[in-house]
């Protein structure tokens, strides 16, 4: 079996400028934030981002000038507010948006995963999404004479970025207790290259005790990095909740470019390890707080 374990720097070196990168994320939940920070640290440029529902990760990538296009259903931090840096970049035309519903995006990725030219959906019929996206959505007659469908063109990202609960060094990936979000199921299957961070690396023997928990076999994974609390400040059920305080600190500064730059400097560029990053975010006190699933930080 091939060793997949590497460092954040080497893993993210697999991403080329201009790539289409699929990012696991559901607003305030389950984003591979250590990989996102490394994209910023390596000054990647002109990336296209594919995200079901993006949150702070998208805001950071927009603020740092890493992305110039986004394919997704929503970008927001839910109760913490809109992603202001992303919003500003879209309004200024620095980021081009292909807006899809979640179902349409899953259909596009699903077609990519199955090597099909398209998958059909009825999800958008009656909406303006189809007319706005003639490149990738097309009405198609049913060959059997039934009602027409929306053909959703295959989307094959260059890279998928995923965070998981545990892995062995050969890149077998497990989720605990089970996959909750649809993007984890489809993004790695559609993408050409899969980069995973895991809360812990364990012996293969430990993985074998619960083979039903394995969501990706090693042969599907290109690079793997051990990153405890790797989804912070988003939540990672059941290990820890999202960091409310950190989200509010970000939304407090996110309209002000100078303050944003200082924030990214302190939390993204300066920390050279995951531990330094976590300490800058409040250290042990923060970790204890999010492990208790605090409702109000």
């Amino acid at each position: 079996m091939q060793e997949k374990l590497t460092t954040l720097a080497e893993a993210i070196a697999l991403v080329d400028d201009g790539n289409v990168v699929a990012l696991q994320n559901m607003a305030t939940q389950a984003a591979p934030m250590a990989l996102v920070r490394e994209l910023i640290r390596q000054e990647k440029r002109e990336l296209g981002l594919v995200v079901l529902v993006g949150g702070m990760a998208v805001d950071w990538l927009a603020a740092a000038g890493v992305i110039n296009r986004l394919i997704g259903a929503a970008v927001s931090m839910e109760q913490f507010g809109l992603c202001q840096q992303y919003r500003k970049a879209v309004e200024a035309g620095r980021i081009r948006v292909e807006e899809l519903s979640e179902t349409l995006l899953n259909a596009r990725l699903g077609a990519g995963a199955r090597n099909l030219p398209f998958l059909p959906s009825r999800g958008a019929i009656g909406s303006d999404l189809i007319a706005q996206n003639p490149e990738n959505l097309k009405m198609l007659d049913d060959p059997f004479g039934g009602f027409p469908v929306v053909a959703c063109r295959a989307l094959i990202p260059d890279v998928a970025l995923i965070h998981a609960h545990r892995a062995d060094r050969y890149g077998n990936i497990q989720y605990e207790p089970t996959v909750l979000w649809p993007d984890i199921g489809i993004m790695p299957k559609a993408a050409k290259c899969v980069i995973v961070t895991a809360e812990e690396i364990v012996d293969t023997e430990v993985m074998r005790r619960h083979p039903d928990r394995t969501i990706l076999p090693g042969f599907m994974v290109d690079a793997l990095v051990e990153v405890p609390f790797g989804a912070h400040p988003t939540s990672f059920f059941p290990n820890y909740g999202y960091d409310s305080r950190f989200h509010r600190e970000w939304t407090d500064v996110s309209r002000d470019d100078e303050a944003v730059s200082a924030f990214l400097d302190r939390h993204v560029l300066t920390p050279s390890t995951q531990e330094e990053y976590l300490d800058a975010a409040g250290g042990v006190a923060t970790l204890s707080r999010i492990e208790k699933w605090e409702k109000r930080g």
């Binding site: 199955r114 090597n115 099909l116 030219p117 398209f118 998958l119 059909p120 959906s121 009825r122 049913d142 060959p143 059997f144 039934g146 009602f147 469908v149």
Partner: peptide, 24 residues
């Protein structure tokens, strides 16, 4: 509730021709 689902499974086989009403 879709009128059809596409697949590449079955391409190049005679199974497709067996059922023109259901697989085409």
């Amino acid at each position: 509730n879709l009128p059809f689902i596409p697949t590449k499974a079955g391409l190049g086989t005679d199974v497709i021709g067996l059922h023109p009403e259901t697989t085409r």
